[in-house]
């Protein structure tokens, strides 16, 4: 029974595969040693797909321009922004952030902006790079 599916299958067999093998084609046998190899630079990683313009990545916070108006804290839906009274600045927990960007829109001084960084997964939500302005 030559159905259209069979033609599709044969065609796809020889086509470029849809999967993007990021970061590696197959999972390594040993994660720890693979991580060591990557750190040394002996293991080449496949690049991720480019992000589009206006991508919502990890939020950058310009501490110096902040005037401490607390507007961003009032619109943050996930309480990722916490106001530090003694400093009159905000502290940003990246692990809680939902990338809605309401703080970016509301900030009167434009202290927040989206970066293109998206590889921010980690095992420790209190890690150094996951809390901005600790």
């Amino acid at each position: 029974m030559p159905t259209s599916t069979i033609y599709l299958l044969i065609k796809q067999l020889f086509e470029k595969k849809a999967t993007n093998p990021f970061p590696l084609k197959y999972a390594p046998d040993d994660m720890t040693s693979a991580a060591e190899l990557i750190e040394k630079g002996d293991l080449d990683l496949n690049p991720p797909i480019d992000v589009p313009e206006n991508y919502r990545g990890k939020i950058r916070y310009d501490k110096d321009c902040c005037i401490g108006c607390k507007l961003c804290v009032r619109v943050c839906p996930s309480e990722a922004l916490v106001f530090k009274e003694e400093e009159a600045k905000v502290k940003h927990y990246v692990a809680r952030c939902t990338f809605c960007g309401q703080c970016v829109n509301i900030c009167p001084k434009s202290c927040f902006e989206f970066s293109e960084e998206f590889l921010i997964a980690g095992t420790d939500k209190n890690a150094e790079d996951l809390i901005i302005n600790p």
Binding site: R74, S78, T98
Partner: peptide
């Protein structure tokens, strides 16, 4: 328990 602006990102979830 949230103000209306905070609910927009919540609603879509």
């Amino acid at each position: 328990h949230r103000n209306p602006l905070k609910v927009i990102p919540l609603a879509e979830r």
